[in-house]
Design a protein around this nucleic acid. Structure first.
Length: 586
RNA sequence: GGGCACGUAGCUCAGCUUGGAUAGAGCGUCGGACUUCUAAUCCGACGGUCGUGGGUUCAAAUCCCACCGUGCCCGCCA
């Protein structure tokens, strides 16, 4: 209703402006401060003051008189507050909001008939997913959910870097070392098992004597050449390592849960000849130069002084070259391609973008969401190769353990005697623990640097997942207590919802689709998280002030029940976008 | 040195793209509210030169410039 009302207000303002002979290009619609019950406001009077030769409040008054809200379904009245115009919602606004939000699909915007691929995580299959990388699947999954709600046709891809030097090193090390050379694995799963070889191999390359290293390097080089040449046996050897490690990492990511429609392997674009084709076309560009035996692209026209090497002097391709072939493949199938990627890839991504542009592609279709790295206290980084960093599995385990302790410690002073079973406790611990980790990460702007600290990541207090989840559980509790079939609330009268906190909650519910629209437009899932906090505040105020089960009369009770259903649906869907579970009880 | 990002209360963060109503939350501190639809909640108090300095504007946390601090990148790695 918010979006519809905004359209009505904009149209009514434009009519009024043009009627008075003012420009209509900027109607200055914004959200009024909390103390006003208006749903929308306009500051347009400020900008007209000069032209009108009158102070803003006077212009506002003139405009308020000129605005005709008669045809507006959702605008009840216009009032001035100094230089501002405030637009108050009508009864129909509230009635339609309650009705719309009781539908489980509330928040889904109209189908845009636009396909979009969200590539995220794409962590190299070298070992366990650590917390430094965890920001990627959490942001990526929320972004994909968000775009889905916003009406896009979304696919989620994980691009598997199975062709680089790292994988050649890994494959060599996997074949080179025996179990007896390796320490105990930290966890009983494939990636923890295999990463031991990878770490051992890297240490060996640094520490072994020159001749031994040269021998190893020759084997690694042979693997890389085999991949480049499309040699089947080499593919099989590398694939054996990649598939095992990736399988384990996938299990870890599913705990979040983050799932993918497709795992796209980099080697695919070497094997099918696409990379060779890209190289051929890049060589033909005016910007292409052959220097020091390597083919490079001069991107100085885009402000990048560093030349982009796309073919090594030994004739092998580079990561970004293969990524160009990968993106051409994406462009063939999707209208938009969005990549969630670490800020350390900023330059690489620019090179990719401009190379694609030079090859004649519309790079407007390409978007990226950068996030900055998560570091350990003391500024230490996390590295799979060196084995430093906190494994995501450990973080999730710890979060669930702490959540379980929390649930159990609260058992004693629960007022409500609803007999939580052991399964309930386990379910709540998982929902709250994992939810807290996700919420902590998704609620912040991705560009801000994060230092990982256990206490902070596992804080269950306000402004965390449990705070919002609790609202959902409270709503579920009321509906359970009322023993009313939500489906029978169709005739509930929203006019009975006249309390200030009821109106405030309704306004929050009404805003949800606009929040989705804005967050999707800007590719900022954290806007949804901010919304859930405001929403929770509004719900808690309503909860405090307005008894539902013991409402003063039946009409009020039914209206409030309908409001609770609407609120529950809204918060469930908002949490769903963030990838945070919405518990029925906790 | 160059490029990109970030800098808002003691701490963690919204707000900045599209300038506008006394700059908002949470944590912490202090003081209140559970025989009540779940107190993982709520109410109140305290707390801010919006990094610094200029500029644009009727109006700047928001836009522009310079500087300072922090992170990331500047490889024929990914």
């Amino acid at each position: 209703m918010y979006l519809a009302m905004r359209a009505e207000v904009a149209a009514a303002l434009r009519d009024a402006l043009s009627g008075l002979g003012y420009p209509t290009d900027d109607v200055g619609i914004e959200r009024p401060p909390e103390e006003f019950d208006a749903a929308l406001a306009s500051s347009v009077a400020f900008r007209l003051a000069g032209e009108a030769g009158a102070p803003p409040p006077q212009v506002a008054g003139e405009l308020a008189d000129a605005v005709d809200a008669g045809d507006c379904r959702y605008v009840d009245r216009v009032e001035t507050a100094g230089p501002y115009l405030n637009f108050y919602p009508s009864d129909a606004y509230f009635a339609d909001t309650v009705e719309a939000a009781q539908d489980g699909a509330y928040g889904h915007l109209d189908d845009r008939e636009t396909s979009v691929v969200v590539e995220h995580t794409s962590a190299n299959p070298t070992g366990p997913v650590h917390v430094g990388r965890a920001r990627n699947p959490i942001i990526g999954d929320a972004l994909a959910n968000l775009l889905d709600y916003a009406g896009y046709d979304v696919d989620r891809h994980y691009y598997v870097n199975d062709a680089g030097r790292q994988m050649a090193v890994f494959t060599w090390a996997y074949e080179r070392f025996d179990e007896s050379d390796l320490p105990e694995p930290e966890r009983d799963r494939a990636e923890y098992d295999l990463v031991r070889s990878y770490r051992k191999g890297n240490a060996y390359l640094e520490e072994a004597d020159e001749a031994a290293v040269a021998e190893a390097e020759a084997e690694i080089e042979a693997i890389m050449q085999g991949l480049e040449a499309g040699d089947d046996e080499t593919y099989e050897r590398v694939g054996e390592v990649v598939d095992q490690v990736l399988g384990g990492m996938r299990e870890c990511l599913e705990r979040l849960p983050a799932e993918f429609d497709e795992f796209v392997k980099e080697t695919r674009f070497m094997h099918n000849g696409d990379t060779d084709d890209v190289v051929k076309r890049l060589k033909g560009l005016d910007e292409s130069v052959y220097e020091e035996d390597a083919w490079q692209l001069d991107l100085s026209e885009f402000g990048i002084e560093k030349q982009f090497v796309f073919l090594r002097s030994d004739g092998t391709s580079l990561y970004t070259t293969r990524d160009i072939a990968h993106h051409e493949w994406k462009f063939e199938q999707y209208d938009r391609a969005i990549t969630v990627i670490g800020e350390d890839h900023q330059l690489t991504f620019d090179q990719l973008r401009y190379a694609l542009k030079l090859l004649g592609h519309d790079t407007e279709k390409l978007d990226q969401v950068f996030y900055s790295w998560v570091n350990l206290p003391g500024g230490e980084g996390m590295s799979t190769r060196e084995g430093t960093g906190i494994d995501l599995d450990d973080l999730l385990d710890e979060a669930i353990d702490r959540a379980r302790e929390e649930v159990e410690s609260r058992m004693g002073d629960r007022i409500r005697n609803d007999e939580l079973t052991d399964e309930d406790i386990e379910r709540i611990a998982r929902q709250v623990g994992v939810g807290a980790v996700r919420y902590d990460i998704v609620s912040k702007q991705p560009t801000k640097a994060i230092t990982f600290e256990w206490e902070r990541a596992l804080d269950f207090e306000a402004q965390s997942a449990p705070y919002v989840q609790y609202v959902h559980a409270r709503a579920a509790g009321i509906l359970g207590e009322a023993e009313v079939d939500p489906a029978t609330l169709g005739d509930a009268d929203a006019a009975a919802l006249s309390h200030q906190t009821e109106r405030d909650l309704l306004r929050e519910i009404a805003r949800f689709p606009a929040v989705i629209e804005e967050a999707a437009e800007e590719l900022h899932p954290h806007i949804v998280a901010t919304y859930t906090r405001d929403f929770a505040d509004a719900f808690n105020a309503f909860y405090r002030e307005c008894p539902v089960v013991d409402a003063p009369d039946e009409e009020t009770q039914r209206a409030r029940l309908a409001l609770v259903v609407a609120a529950k649906t809204t918060i469930a869907n908002a949490l769903n976008i963030l990838g945070v579970a919405a518990p029925e009880s906790m």
